[in-house]
Design a protein around this nucleic acid. Structure first.
Lengths: 184, 184
DNA sequence: AGCAACATGTAAGTCGTTACATGATTTC
DNA sequence: GAAATCATGTAACGACTTACATGTTGCT
């Protein structure tokens, strides 16, 4: 039994062998816009994946107080990952704090509503420009057009992020018009 | 200290007094497309909100083995809710299993990729038609155009859902073209 | 010499899900 | 009279966050 976090780690390890620290940089610090995890979750999960023979490690030289471990995916791990990709999707339980706030928008006056909406718009704008910058970098590389390359998949997730933020910004305009339009 | 789930419950109770069972129907079964919770989480959370004087209950006649409790929001609860609405947003940690799958799309062949993408498209289409049906119902009512009515806020979240799904479907088309276009 | 980055682990606590438990009222 | 719905609670477990703990290497 592999958890979703386990599949996230397998997906990264299928791209390149990495240390737990490398994986943490991707999932905690960097561009973790569709999955995130802290190192305190990642290290135990790697140990569990190893117990299930989905990854294996070799000790390499490194700067930590403990032995530095370089993990790589096993054949069994790769099989489990590809089986999951086309398998039944988990019920994605949406938990969207922004929309939760919006659902109580009727409680506050127009000025407060504008403030709330401006915050949403600003964060969305920031996200969008970040994604567009990354997407441009990928488009400059050759691998991003080849479906068998990791860069292709990353570019696809970036496109989803871009379109999602564009849609949200258009929604902000729609809502603002409805707010201002009413003689409240 | 009120949790996000606490604010979700306060938001519902600000609309109408309810039993824990009523709240469960909304957050677990019904249209819980931006927040969800099970009854085992809701009942203890209501008790905690009551300890903090954010809600209060009165016992009414009902069909359960225990006394049926009708909760209503207090002035303090309403203040906490409106303060949260315009306060600092929590870091919304995106956890998107669909995009996690897509990020490993490069591992599988064209047929499997098409299968994965078709699943995404189908679920998105279903969601979209559901949201559109609900939105049409709201548009028929008068309150949905008045920003001080709960129906206005619900209609706004529905619009966000609609636009989000439309964007995802357009993204599916984009990705499919890029997949088929390459002579893989 | 000092600081940032490297590097891995555990512990305590919160949030959320699944399962256990119970029994009255309404509908067919 | 059987089944669905109403109605509230607890227990065990898994997922995730925050905090504790430690020490090396490389850069300035």
């Amino acid at each position: 039994m592999v958890s979703v976090l386990g599949y996230a780690l397998l997906g990264l390890l299928a791209r390149a062998p990495s240390t737990g620290y490398d994986l943490t940089r991707v999932l905690d610090r960097d561009l973790s816009y569709f999955w995130s995890a802290r190192h305190s979750q990642i290290y135990p999960e790697l140990a569990r994946l190893e117990r299930g023979d989905h990854v294996r490690h070799t000790v390499i030289s490194g700067a930590g107080p403990r032995p530095t471990k370089r993990y790589e995916i096993t054949a069994r791990g790769r099989d489990a990952l590809t089986a999951w990709l086309v398998g039944e999707p988990e019920e994605s339980i949406e938990r969207n704090p922004t929309m939760l706030r919006i659902s109580s928008l009727w409680l506050i006056d127009r000025a407060a509503a504008r403030q709330l909406l401006d915050g949403v718009r600003r964060r969305s704008t920031d996200r969008l420009s970040l994604y567009r910058r990354f997407a441009a970098e990928f488009d400059a590389e050759p691998g991003s057009a080849d479906p068998s390359q990791p860069a292709f998949a990353t570019r696809a997730t970036l496109e989803a992020g871009i379109r999602s933020q564009e849609a949200r910004l258009a929604w902000c305009d729609w809502l603002q018009e409805r707010l201002e339009g009413s003689g409240r």
